[in-house]
C-alpha cells in the first residue's frame, strides 16, 4: 500500500504480479531508455491556504515535460480550516519523459477544494501520479480529472475521510486512442461516520487503447451512515479497444449505504436509430450521444468557464476520432 503514497522507486517498480498493478505494465512502458535516466532534482510546488482564506479565482499550476527526462515531482495542496480554493493542474510536454509524481491534498475542517486536473502529456510520455488525500470534518473535495495524453498514465488516488461530514467527489473522463494506456485506481477509506464519497468515471476508448478502472470503497468499523457511490461507464469505439474494470466494496459497518456499478460496451443501437429516424446522419447522431455521455461527468465541475473549456477539448478530440 505504501508504494502508492510515495514517489515510485525506480529500482523497485511494481509489476503486474502486484494485485494493484495487474493491468498496467509500467516497466514495459518506460523501457530501458527512461528507466536508466537519472531523475532530476525533486521539483516541488506547494499551494498553502491559511485558516479561513477564500480564493475566488482559479489558480493554474502547469507541469511541463521535456524529452528524455525523469521527473520526480511533489505537489502539495494544503487548505487549513475553512479555506476555499480552485486549483487547475495542467500537464503538457513533448517527447518521451517520465513524470513520477506524488500529490498530497490535505483539507482542514470545513475547507472547500475544487481540483481540476487536465492531463495532456505527450503521447510518448509516462505519468505515474500517486495522490493522497486526507479530509477533516465537514471538508468538501470536488475533483475532476481528464486524461487525454500519455503513452501510459496511472492516476492512483487514496482518499482518507478522517472527519465526520466530509464529502469527497472524484470524477473523471478518459479519452484514449492509438495504443494509449490509462489507469485510474482509487481507494476511498471511510474512517469517520456520516461521510459521503462519490466516484463517477467515464471513458471512451478508440483504436487499440487500453483503459483500467479499479475503484474501492473501504468502510471502516464505526463509519456508520456512510454514503458511498461508485460508477464507471465505458464506451468502446473500436473492436480492438480494451477495458478492465474492478469495482470493490469492503464494509465493516452495519448502517451504511453503498453501491457500485460498471458498464462497458459499444454505443447503443436504439438511441442511434431514434436520432437517425429524426433526420440526424450517423456521425451527427454518434457525436451527440457520445458528447452527452461525457458531458454528464463534466457537468459536475462547478466553475462554468472551466466546464466550457473542457467541453471544447472533448469536442475537439471527438471531431478527430469520429470523422
Amino acid at each position: 500500500m505504501t508504494t502508492c503514497l510515495r514517489i515510485l522507486d525506480r529500482d523497485a517498480l511494481p509489476t503486474p504480479k502486484d494485485e494493484q498493478w495487474k493491468y498496467t505494465h509500467l516497466g514495459r512502458a518506460l523501457g530501458a531508455r527512461l528507466l536508466n535516466v537519472q531523475p532530476l532534482a525533486q521539483q516541488q510546488i506547494l499551494v498553502h491556504k491559511t485558516v479561513g482564506e477564500i480564493c475566488k479565482e482559479p489558480e493554474k499550476i502547469v507541469w511541463k515535460g521535456e524529452a528524455g527526462n525523469h521527473y520526480q515531482s511533489r505537489f502539495e495542496i494544503v487548505l487549513e480550516d475553512g479555506a476555499q480554493a480552485t486549483i487547475v493542474e495542467f500537464h503538457e510536454g513533448e517527447g518521451a519523459y517520465w513524470k513520477n509524481m506524488s500529490t498530497e491534498i490535505v483539507l482542514g475542517a470545513n475547507a472547500r477544494l475544487n481540483h481540476i486536473r487536465i492531463q495532456k502529456d505527450s503521447v510518448d510520455a509516462v505519468q505515474t501520479n500517486m495522490v493522497h488525500i486526507s479530509m477533516e470534518r465537514d471538508s468538501h473535495l470536488n475533483s475532476f480529472s481528464i486524461n487525454l495524453g500519455g503513452k501510459l498514465t496511472r492516476h492512483d488516488i487514496h482518499a482518507v475521510l478522517n472527519g465526520s461530514g466530509a464529502q469527497c467527489q472524484l470524477n473523471g473522463v478518459n479519452l484514449l486512442k492509438g495504443q494509449q494506456h490509462g489507469d485510474t485506481t482509487i481507494i476511498v477509506e471511510h474512517v469517520a461516520p456520516h461521510c459521503v464519497s462519490n466516484q463517477f468515471y467515464r471513458s471512451l476508448l478508440d483504436d487499440k487503447a487500453h483503459g483500467v478502472f479499479q475503484g474501492k470503497v473501504h468502510v471502516h468499523r464505526g463509519a456508520q451512515k456512510t454514503d458511498g457511490y461508485q460508477l464507471a461507464n465505458t464506451i468502446l469505439l473500436s473492436p480492438m479497444a480494451k477495458m478492465a474494470t474492478k469495482p470493490e466494496l469492503e464494509i465493516y459497518a452495519d448502517d451504511v449505504k453503498c453501491s457500485h456499478g460498471t458498464t462497458t460496451g459499444a454505443l447503443d443501437e436504439e438511441p442511434l436509430f431514434y436520432l437517425r429516424s429524426r433526420g440526424l446522419n450517423e456521425s451527427q447522431a454518434r457525436m451527440l450521444l457520445i458528447q452527452a455521455f461525457i458531458d454528464e461527468v463534466i457537468g459536475k465541475i462547478t466553475d462554468s468557464s472551466i466546464q466550457t473549456r473542457i467541453k471544447d477539448m472533448v469536442a475537439e478530440w471527438l471531431k478527430k476520432q469520429l470523422n
Partner: peptide, 21 residues
C-alpha cells in the same frame, strides 16, 4: 416505445433534429 437519450436535453435534441432535416 420512445427511446431514452441519456444526457441530451429536449431543446438540444429538437434543435439538432429540426436543423438536420
Amino acid at each position: 416505445y420512445p427511446v431514452e437519450i441519456p444526457g441530451v436535453n429536449m431543446n438540444v435534441f429538437l434543435k439538432a433534429a429540426v436543423n438536420a432535416l
